[in-house]
Write a protein that binds this DNA or RNA. Structure first.
Length: 338
DNA sequence: CTCCCGCA
DNA sequence: TGCGGGAGG
């Protein structure tokens, strides 16, 4: 998913407390996708309510967000809008992977291969409209703001950081850099553990921050050239050059200056190059958003989570209490400042 | 993923 | 008090 330029970036280990009082623009799609793929039972089936509707994402969102608020972080979730036409090939490839995985999941379950079943179930997860609507509703009654991007969520999140309405983007992908995000954090989990893809193994992951200027300085390129490097390697909008990974791409761009010169030198072309580049340099974003944190609505939360979705009342009362206490503390802090 | 119980 | 592992919906 996204662009494979991770190796080139300057990663700095940070602590969750370093993000205290910071506004973090969270890539909602990215986060929900993680919850959906990871919060599953051993045979791979997701958590569901009594009508069979998936609820894994609700569990993840509630607990994760509550912990972020407790850590003093000010989260705002950014949802994807309509993807650009140039992304259609990537999207149909992802769809194919999901559908193949769904078949393999069924087969593995039938054969009693639990481990394979779990693996394919994870790869079959999809953030659909119902998941998105549920999540927006839950965030609303939690008092957590969210923004609807006109197009790519990562572009919108980057825009909000550029405008200084947020301090950094939180995503596992690197794409927001290509949209000019000055600062990105990865691995923003509570436990500091993450599941290894495909395997039933958990590893410790460090919360890390990557600053665009620092990375550009270390690489000796500008943002335009970083975008060129990504296009050489391949993005959601194009395939990338044969046998060119991040290191080679960096070398090529530094040697020849820009992607046009690289392509001339190699005698190859990238179809629609100007349009691809435009998607990164002038993405479709909006200023029509409001970032405001409110009080959680206990009654609606208990009703939605317990009545409608079958969560345990005991657990939810505890979680809602935590959320209320944490957002009250935040309110106090803000009052002291203003 | 995060919670929470059982166990050192 | 802190870890391991299963449950959660």
């Amino acid at each position: 998913m996204g662009t494979d330029i991770g190796d080139l970036l300057q990663k700095r280990k940070i602590e969750l407390t370093d993000l205290s009082n910071r506004v973090v623009a969270i890539d909602a799609f990215n986060t929900l996708h993680q919850f959906l793929s990871i919060i599953r039972q051993r045979d791979g089936s997701p958590l569901v309510n009594s009508s069979g509707k998936v609820t894994s994402h609700l569990s993840g969102l509630l607990y994760r967000t509550a912990s972020l608020i407790e850590a003093g972080i000010k989260p705002v979730f950014v949802f994807d809008g309509k993807p650009p036409d140039l992304k259609s090939e990537t999207l149909s490839r992802r769809k194919e992977v999901r559908e193949t995985s769904l078949e393999k999941w069924e087969n593995a379950k039938a054969e009693g291969d639990i481990e394979a079943a779990h693996k394919y179930a994870q790869a079959s997860s999809k953030v659909d409209q119902a998941i998105v609507e549920d999540s927006k509703y839950l965030l609303g009654i939690m008092g957590i703001p969210w923004t609807q991007a006109p197009c790519e969520g990562e572009a919108q999140a980057a825009h909000m950081v550029i405008k200084k309405d947020a301090d950094c983007v939180a995503s596992q992908d690197y794409d927001s850099f290509l949209f000019g995000a000055p600062s990105v954090v990865r691995n923003m989990t509570v436990t500091g553990k993450r599941k290894l893809p495909g395997k039933n193994v958990y590893v410790d992951v460090e919360l890390e921050r990557i600053d665009l200027d620092e990375t550009l300085g270390a690489l000796g390129v500008n943002l335009d050239q970083l975008i060129d490097i990504a296009i050489c390697v391949g993005t959601d909008y194009n395939k990338g050059l044969e046998k060119v990974g991040p290191k080679t791409a960096l070398k090529l761009i530094k040697k020849h200056g820009d992607i046009h010169a690289v392509l001339r030198e190699k005698g190859v072309e990238i179809e629609g190059l100007d349009n691809i580049k435009e998607l990164f340099t002038h993405p479709d974003v909006t200023d029509d958003y409001e970032i405001k944190w409110g009080k959680p609505d206990s009654e609606k939360l208990i009703n939605f989570l317990c009545e409608e979705n079958g969560f345990s009342v005991d657990r939810m009362e505890k979680a809602v209490e935590r959320l209320k206490a944490a957002s009250g503390a935040r309110q106090k802090t803000l009052d002291q400042w203003f």
